[in-house]
Amino acid sequence: MKPLNLSQFPEDTYVLIESKKRKEIFQKLEKKLGFLTRSKDITSGALYDWKKGYMIKNKIKKIKRYIPLPKLKKLCKNINININNLHPYIQEIKTSSRSGLIKNPKLPLKIIPETFTLLGHFLGDGYGGEIGRSVYTNISEEARKEFIKNLKKVFGDIYYSTNPNHPYYISVAKIAPKILKKYFEIKDFRNSKPLLTKKILNAPRKYLVEFIKAIIIDEGSVRDIGIEIGITANPKLTNQIKKICVKRLNYKCKEYKHSFRICTESYIQFSKDIPNLIIPHKQERFQRHFKRKFRKWYNRYKDSTKKEIIKQLLSKPLDAIELSTNLNIMASGIRDQINGYNLKERRIPGLIDLEIVKVKNLGYRNIQIFEIANKNKAFAFINGEYK
């Protein structure tokens, strides 16, 4: 994809030019105009500050003086310089005064797959600084580290900060999401507002893979029956993401009211595209599918699964996901064996019905944690002596 030149940056970009080149520009301007004060629409004070690269505050403190991009365009046009020829001489770029900056930016800015990763994150758990700071938030330390790595890969030496009092938040120089919004023609990153543009939808496949990966890291749930994705506040955006998965990435998907699911039938292709989902529990759940698929047995003898569940719970209380991982069985199958289920109008009793297992308590997000209710009955069932 075509790189982004300085001339294409957001209009509220501010630029600091390397000293020698900066003086050369203003010497040419002085030579043409005679005096800097004669430049139209720009005050003489601003011109002299830009020439020096700083201004004096309170008669003591030196403060860097950045040139607004629209003004720099005018100056370059006035002395017949192509603004994009200044790429090697740009020391810093930023937006408003306290929003962070990029040092020694590598211009033109290359659009690489990781650019689409950042786009996905700002559409997911990010915030573009429409009001206040621009941030990315994720409870996973691995996801936050990956975000910072991609941020540096795309933008180079860019400002970001973390706060030990709010460890899940990463504050990012506002210039980053502003550049992404300008390039991808998105007005607002807030969840209920953005829609994907043709520049995104028509991007090469490898770029879209990175975009979907970021969306899954932030908004996806890896389940036994597939990966569910849904941005409840923006159904149209959810539908666009689904179309990318179906039409561009060739994943089989099932649609729900407020979300869609990448089906397990597409997992082999998906694992080639996205071998690592970064967040450990999501990656573990994804890999669990292949462990089940290639296990040595398909069906067990009657009550074999119930016996294995009992053996696990005799050791310690566990939830259905933990039992699923240990026994290499779908969590839904574990719940059926514990809670019971209906089969052709016939009730198949579960371990709770048999008074062998009970719900100990509700864990995080009200997940049921199971334990043995009666050890004598548990051992009797394992030994085939239960009546």
Rank of each mutant, 00 (worst) to 15 (best):
L4R: 08
P10C: 01
V15Q: 01
I17V: 10
S19W: 15
F26D: 00
Q27D: 15
K31M: 13
T43M: 05
A46Y: 10
A46I: 05
D49A: 08
Y54L: 08
M55N: 02
I56K: 05
K57Q: 06
K62S: 03
K64M: 06
L72N: 00
L72Y: 00
L75S: 00
N82V: 00
I93Q: 03
K94W: 02
K103I: 11
K106H: 13
T117M: 10
D125L: 14
D125Q: 15
G128P: 05
G129L: 04
E130H: 10
I131Y: 12
S134G: 09
V135N: 04
E142S: 10
L151W: 05
V154W: 02
V154C: 08
G156K: 01
I158K: 09
S161R: 11
T162I: 12
N163V: 02
H166Q: 15
Y168L: 11
Y169L: 13
I175G: 03
I175Y: 03
P177D: 05
L180A: 06
K181Y: 03
K182G: 03
Y183E: 06
K187Q: 11
F189N: 00
F189A: 03
N191W: 12
N191Y: 12
N191V: 12
L196D: 04
T197S: 14
T197M: 10
I200N: 09
A214C: 08
R223D: 14
I231C: 01
P235Q: 07
N239E: 15
Q240I: 14
K242G: 01
L249E: 03
L249K: 04
Y251G: 02
S259Y: 14
E265W: 10
S266F: 04
I274W: 11
N276I: 10
K282F: 10
Q283A: 08
R285H: 09
Q287H: 13
R292I: 11
K306R: 15
K306S: 13
I310T: 07
I310K: 07
L313I: 04
E322C: 05
E322T: 11
T325D: 15
L327G: 07
I329D: 02
I329W: 02
R335Q: 12
N339F: 09
N361S: 14
G363V: 03
N374M: 10
A378S: 01
A380I: 07
A380N: 11
